[in-house]
Design a protein around this nucleic acid. Sequence first.
DNA 1: GAGAGGTTGATAGACGTCAATCAATTTTTG
DNA 2: CAAAAATTGATTGACGTCTATCAACCTCTC
Lengths: 349, 349
Amino acid sequence: MRRPTLNDVAKAAGVSYATADRVLNNRGSVSEKSRKRVQQAIADLGYVRDQQAANLSRRRQFHFRFILPIGNHSFFQALHAAVAEEAPVQRGDRVNLSIVGTPALDADAQVAALDAVGDDCDCVAVVATRTERVTAAIRALDARGIGVITLVSDAAPEARRAYVGIDNRTAGRTAGRLMEIAHGPRGGLVLPIVGVLQASDHRDRLDGLHDALAGTLPAIEILPAISVQDRADLMRDMLPRALAARPDISGIYSIGAGNRGLLEVLAHHRGPRPFTIVHELTPVTREGLSGGLFDAVIDQKPAQEVRRAIEVMKAIATGTAWRDPARDITPAIYVKENMPLEGGSPTAH
Amino acid sequence: MRRPTLNDVAKAAGVSYATADRVLNNRGSVSEKSRKRVQQAIADLGYVRDQQAANLSRRRQFHFRFILPIGNHSFFQALHAAVAEEAPVQRGDRVNLSIVGTPALDADAQVAALDAVGDDCDCVAVVATRTERVTAAIRALDARGIGVITLVSDAAPEARRAYVGIDNRTAGRTAGRLMEIAHGPRGGLVLPIVGVLQASDHRDRLDGLHDALAGTLPAIEILPAISVQDRADLMRDMLPRALAARPDISGIYSIGAGNRGLLEVLAHHRGPRPFTIVHELTPVTREGLSGGLFDAVIDQKPAQEVRRAIEVMKAIATGTAWRDPARDITPAIYVKENMPLEGGSPTAH
DNA sequence: GAGAGGTTGATAGACGTCAATCAATTTTTG
DNA sequence: CAAAAATTGATTGACGTCTATCAACCTCTC
């Protein structure tokens, strides 16, 4: 009934504990014969190393660092909160999380944060911009034996060990598909709103939108994107003019932040309301959904991403295999009805 | 740098290890003064019990049993596969999973499986039908000190410790919202297809659909549901007649299984294709999405549910708090574009 | 057949916690 | 104030693995 220990394996193989250990952790020298017998015994008994005892004995502590943008975007705040919420839980499992904030979009700050990572750190997760310097800093860390994964935005695909986050082009295509569904057999005109077009994730989403709507018949046209710098005030300023200029706008795809402004503009909008898709489930976008001013939210589920990132980092640190995060991290679609409950604290018992 | 141990706490509190231990695990008798000082020291040092060492010492093994329906539905197979896939991973963490299959919808078999659970089992997850007998069996297990959670279908809400799965009424409402989006300013006629209406989850989804479409203007009407017993052959048989009887059907909501048949019927359907929503991401529904015959899939992400279930069971077994699963388990909406990649094996390195 | 090198067995002390025991001390009670 | 009860300290042996050391053995080679 009890699960087999390495001692059981050794007995079954007819060798000493020491030899079984040498095979398991391949150290020392072992004859081919003994190796075979031990491996056979492991297979026969279905032995699985007790990770917890192993970690204890190795006095293995994991130290993972998250380098996250700071800013007043709710999304970054949610990401930050997700990491902070995991920290105490993970501590009980010998995993220590630390967070360093950098100003959003500031590559130099990101590089500095990467360079500042100490040698006691096992793995780093960074939300970075795609820059030569950042790539170099990631490579430098890797050379020091510290794996780096990218989070949310896949900067430095050549240097990072893994990327945990959605594919933004896919997200844009998804938005396009929803637009198409909403337009049905009619044509239409979609206004994309970005933060800055230089941001690769915004560009990717926009490209995805174009992918999805290319060749729809009757045509759903896409206006040139307006850029509001992720700021609600600019949204309040620029969007009404865009809407006035083209009263036939039938869809809005808000690619970045500043959705508080979008919400207000839509609330005062006269005439048929454009079908509106926004990104990230935040207090504002929740409000938009439940109030019926936003129709769909495309979300990347930051809490889930953080948990996934920790899993991958553990795998990297222990040298075990991991599942490709791209497999299960896809943009989620929320409408009013399937929006998850907010917050919620642990249920006692 | 090193994280504090209980020994450090004891020293800081100026008491012996034994006393600190008595406070931590509240056993034995401790004076109020000592208790205060130890708790203060715990807070000061930020001590967190090392779960892994604790489990090791307690020689704590968890045994969790999954009682799952067997059947040729891809969804059940996916659920089964998800548990099987987690098993070896969890073993390394002292968690042993076992699976027992029961014929779908067979309450007696479920009761038998519940009754057969041994005392070495710490917690049970069951996909059960809602029946008095099942509820009684769950209560009996609980009385023996074995917690039971329900999975996928919330049978026995009064007796189970937790429910891990989507709210089916919410799922139905979500489908209704998508129908509304797809119909835009036009009215329409939706045909719901259920397995058996007696199944409470199917009934809930249908109710949800009615919730969401009640009062739409212009009206989206809902036909009486046809029942295909979750069988593709009945689907092939009954659906074409239903479609022929009402050529103005503009939407199909397939609530249960048998979608292979639906796919074939739609492939041969003449005239404008109804907007089609199905449940569960399976090989068939994937095929339907990518081929453009299905428009949306509502999925409950069985793999994620299984992981969540294990987390909750661990919490129940250790007596710690858990987050309400309802918080993050909501029906997912997939369209062609955001459908996750299938399968995928671990990535080495 | 002596020495070198490869292989094996036995053993021991961590790691942090649990669970238990026993003696010593303090506090409470009658 | 003595006896009883409550509290405390000190210690010990698990749990399963890691890591290291040392002696013993085997198989070559020169």
